[in-house]
């Protein structure tokens, strides 16, 4: 390990520091770019099935090829509480307050953010 570090040039090390900085900054910048979500959108097989407020606690059972997936919304966060797919990646994602949880086997996508449609349209509120 020491040998490897010795073999690097100063330019290599600077590049390394720069890349780490960019990565860290990227996390924060992307967080800022996405405003705090208020809706949980559940898409089944590519189609929006539910749009639910993020601030109303509830359990949402959703059917899929591997049976019922249990989605839990609590305290402004959402998680897949229980799923019967093999890899359990969606369950291991844990709680999110913004971003996306995907369960490919169940063809399930959970999106936390403002209404997807509103965002596309750049609309902050609707009158009517």
């Amino acid at each position: 390990m020491k040998e490897t570090i010795k073999n690097t040039t100063l330019a290599d090390r600077l590049l390394f520091i720069l890349l780490i900085s960019v990565s860290i900054a990227g996390i924060f910048i992307s967080r800022d770019a996405l405003s705090q979500g208020s809706n949980v959108i559940i898409e089944i097989d590519g189609k929006p099935a539910y749009t639910l407020p993020l601030y109303e606690n509830r359990l949402v059972p959703v059917g899929g090829p591997y049976g019922i997936t249990l989605i839990e919304i609590q305290g402004g966060k959402v998680r897949v509480k229980q799923a019967h797919c093999r890899n359990q990646i969606c369950v291991r994602e844990g709680w999110i307050s913004k971003g996306v949880i995907v369960c490919l086997p169940n063809k399930l996508v959970i999106i936390v953010g403002g209404s997807k449609k509103d965002k596309q349209q750049g609309i902050d509120a609707i009158t009517g």
């Binding site: 509103d118 349209q121 750049g122 609309i123 902050d124 509120a125 609707i126 009158t127 009517g128």
Partner: peptide, 9 residues
Amino acid sequence: PWVVGIKNP
């Protein structure tokens, strides 16, 4: 400014 959409009746 904020942007408000008007619903299609």
